[in-house]
Structure formats: C-alpha cells, structure tokens
C-alpha cells in the first residue's frame, strides 16, 4: 500500500527544501530575537512615548494567524510599493512574528531582575541604557532561554506555511513531490518525520548556543 520508491529520485528536492527551511529559521531566529530584545527594552525601560506602538505591534501579531501575516506582507504590501521575493517575504513574516513573541518572553525575564541590579548599575554612574546593555540583558536572556528556544522551534514548525506563497521550503518540496508522484501520504509522512528531526536538532543547537552564550550560572 505504501510506496517510497520515489525517494530515490526526489531526495535532492527534499534536501533543497530542508536547506531553505534551515536558512529561513537561522535568519529568522537571529533577527527575530534581536527585534524582540529591542521591543522588550522599549516596553520595560525605553521611552514612554514609544511604548503604545510596540504594545500594539505585539498584541496585533500575537492575536492573528501567521498565515494571514504572511499573506498581508506578500500580497498586501506590494500595493504600497513594497515588492519582495517569496523568500524575503517569508523571512520578514517570521522575523516580525518571532519578534512579537520573544518581546513578551524577554520582557518577563527583564521584570524578574532584582531591583538591586538596576540600583547597582546606577550607583556606578551607568546610564539606564548602559545598565540594561551591560548588567540586565544577559542574565535576563539566560533566565528565559528555555522558553525562547521553544518559541524558535514553534516558529520553525510554523514556517511550513510559507509554501503557500511559493517559498521553496521543505513543505513546498513535499507539495511538489506529491504533485509529481501522486504519493501524497508518503510525501507528507517523510517530510513530517524530517520536521520532527529538525525540531529535535534545533533544540539541541539552541541549548548548546545557550551554554555558549551563558557560560556561567548567573541570573538565577
């Protein structure tokens, strides 16, 4: 009943899809977390006038589906003159999405910082931003790193919908293969298994990155 003979012919297609998915999440995670840090700074310590805008962004993204965000960016923004490729649109959507979620996660980490840390920074004549940059940020990130890892994985798995704007990721590859071979179930079964492996590997990579960035047990 099941037929996996197509694998022999189509594995390069899958491989290319895997690489695109990895590329998407690598750029998406790095830029998304950076955006999240910036937004978390604004929401907890930054200029008051900027906070409502960031709050609106975070709430809007967290309360709408990623698919619609993607469609809005890819189909909607060109009418404002913002043209971009499928890959660029996909990546932008992921960055914006992860930025909002990681903002909330990182903000929780900042809020868990003992008051004394801010006061110690101030007493050493650091500006509030210097205190944030040098004293608050790293322990805050360390505190919430596991939650941040989970969110990056959620975004990676969620990226499978970028195939809907024809970004050529792993799901796109599975769609392509099933349209050629008519082995829909097998194609999706294999790609699901690959996603599972990618999720497990990504978690390991992120945990390793965590112990590289935070070599000491500070921040607890």
């Amino acid at each position: 009943m099941f037929d996996y003979a197509w694998l022999a012919q189509y594995w390069p297609v899958l491989l290319k899809g895997i690489l695109v998915t990895i590329q998407l999440i690598t750029v998406g995670a790095a830029a998304g977390i950076a955006l999240g840090i910036a937004c978390a700074w604004v929401r907890s310590l930054g200029p008051k006038w900027l906070r409502p805008a960031v709050t609106a962004y975070v709430e809007l993204i967290r309360n709408t589906p990623f698919l619609i965000q993607l469609f809005f960016i890819f189909f909607g923004l060109p009418s404002l003159g913002l043209q971009m490729s499928e890959f660029q649109a996909a990546n932008l959507a992921m960055i914006i999405n992860l930025g909002a979620y990681s903002c909330e996660i990182i903000r929780a980490g900042i809020q868990a910082t003992p008051r004394g840390q801010f006061e110690a920074g101030a007493s050493l004549a650091m500006t509030p931003f210097e205190t944030f940059r040098h004293v608050i940020l790293v322990p805050s990130l360390q505190r919430i790193w596991p939650a941040l890892c989970s969110q990056v994985i959620i975004v990676m798995l969620g990226s499978s919908v970028v195939s809907q704007i024809a970004a050529e990721d792993l799901t796109f590859a599975a769609n392509f293969i099933q349209s050629r071979t008519f082995r829909a179930f097998e194609a999706y079964f294999v790609s699901t298994a690959i996603y599972l492996v990618l999720a497990i590997l990504l978690r390991q990579v992120l945990i390793a990155a965590g112990s590289f960035i935070f070599p000491r047990r500070s921040g607890r």
Partner: peptide, 10 residues
C-alpha cells in the same frame, strides 16, 4: 514537534 500543517495533510 511537527508542523500543524503537516498533521492536517496527513
């Protein structure tokens, strides 16, 4: 550990 979209396809 797998995408919801894949679960829907399957």
């Amino acid at each position: 550990g797998t995408p919801l979209l894949m679960q829907l396809f399957l």
